[in-house]
Computed example of a mutant assay.
Amino acid sequence: MKTTSSQKIKIGLFTVIGFVILFLAVFYIGNQKSMFSSTFKVYGIFRNVSGLTVGNNVRFAGINVGVVESINIVNDSSVRVDLTLNNSVKKFIKTDSKMSIGSDGLMGDKLVVIAPGGISSNTEVAEGNKLNTVNPIDVDKVINKLTKVADNAEAVTGGLASIVNKINNGKGSIGRLLNNEQIAEDLEGTVKQARKTIKGVHATTATLNEDLKAAQSNFLLKGFFKKKEKAKRDSLKKIQEAKEKAQKEREKAKKEAQERAEKEAKEKAKNNN
């Protein structure tokens, strides 16, 4: 079948359009991956990259500024992550800037986030510099801990439910106390009796105090209380006299010691002369 001119024109147009679309796609992808702009490289060492892959975005101040160039295992506890960044953000990244691994939304792809820095150093980062890193949280460990907490909470809840059920059915001491009206009435009677006893003790104490005051005023016992008061005063007087005597003896001993020291000092000075 012979191809007509219109068909040739259509084929040519489709071919040109295909090349334009391919060119635009390559340009767009290259622009997203910083393939057509001036770039520089930095790296960081992580213990765990949490699913980060080569080609994931790098963000600075919420803006995509580069991509993850490579991820290599250094040893059993270190993973090196190399980044390719746009040269336009180089002046904003300092040597004390930190790399961390985050997510693009709750369920999005992993990405590297660079904190600005400039707190302890204002030196601009250079090509191939190593940046400090903040290791990501181990999600598996967190989930395991939450699972254990949930299991423990379930066990505690089940235990409490069993205890409450026994109490409601009148089992155990607390259950019998709460569900047996006779025990409750006996306990209430015991409390009332205790209150009456306490009131009686207070009344007896007040009566004894009044009787003691009355006895002190009675002329038959007045002499006894006066002798007791006099003996108390005499005892206090003797204690005070003993304290004064001891004080005088201490002062006398101190004075004698001072005089002996002065006498010895004079004799020593005389012998030296």
Rank of each mutant, 00 (worst) to 15 (best):
A25E: 08
A231V: 07
N87L: 13
K171C: 00
K255L: 08
Q182N: 14
A25C: 04
A150P: 02
K196N: 13
Q193F: 02
K90F: 03
T147C: 01
S217M: 04
L221D: 08
S121V: 02
L178T: 09
G158H: 11
G117H: 02
E262H: 04
T95V: 11
M99W: 04
E124L: 07
G128K: 05
M107T: 10
P136W: 00
N48P: 01
V113Q: 12
G66W: 05
R250C: 02
G51C: 03
T95Q: 04
E267G: 04
I174P: 00
S50G: 11
E244D: 12
Q32T: 14
A257I: 08
G118W: 07
L106M: 07
G223P: 10
A242G: 12
N48F: 13
P116I: 04
K145W: 03
K8M: 09
S37N: 06
N271C: 03
K268D: 11
I29F: 07
S38H: 13
L146V: 15
F219H: 03
I137F: 13
A194G: 14
K8E: 14
G159E: 12
K213L: 05
T205D: 15
N152H: 15
V125M: 03
G44V: 10
S6E: 14
K171P: 00
S217E: 08
A231C: 07
I183V: 13
I163Q: 09
S121K: 07
T205R: 13
K91R: 12
F225Q: 07
I93N: 02
N180C: 00
T133C: 14
L131N: 04
R250T: 10
K91I: 00
L106F: 11
F19N: 03
L212F: 11
M99P: 01
L22Y: 14
L24Q: 15
K213A: 09
I29M: 04
D104R: 06
S217D: 05
L85K: 05
D138G: 07
K238R: 04
L111P: 01
P136C: 00
K196Y: 11
E249D: 13
E210K: 12
E241V: 02
G30A: 11
N129D: 15
E241N: 07
I63E: 15
N169M: 14
K213G: 03
A214G: 00
I11D: 15
A184N: 09
K33I: 01
K199W: 11
I101Q: 04
K199N: 12
E185G: 11
S5T: 03
K248L: 14
S217T: 06
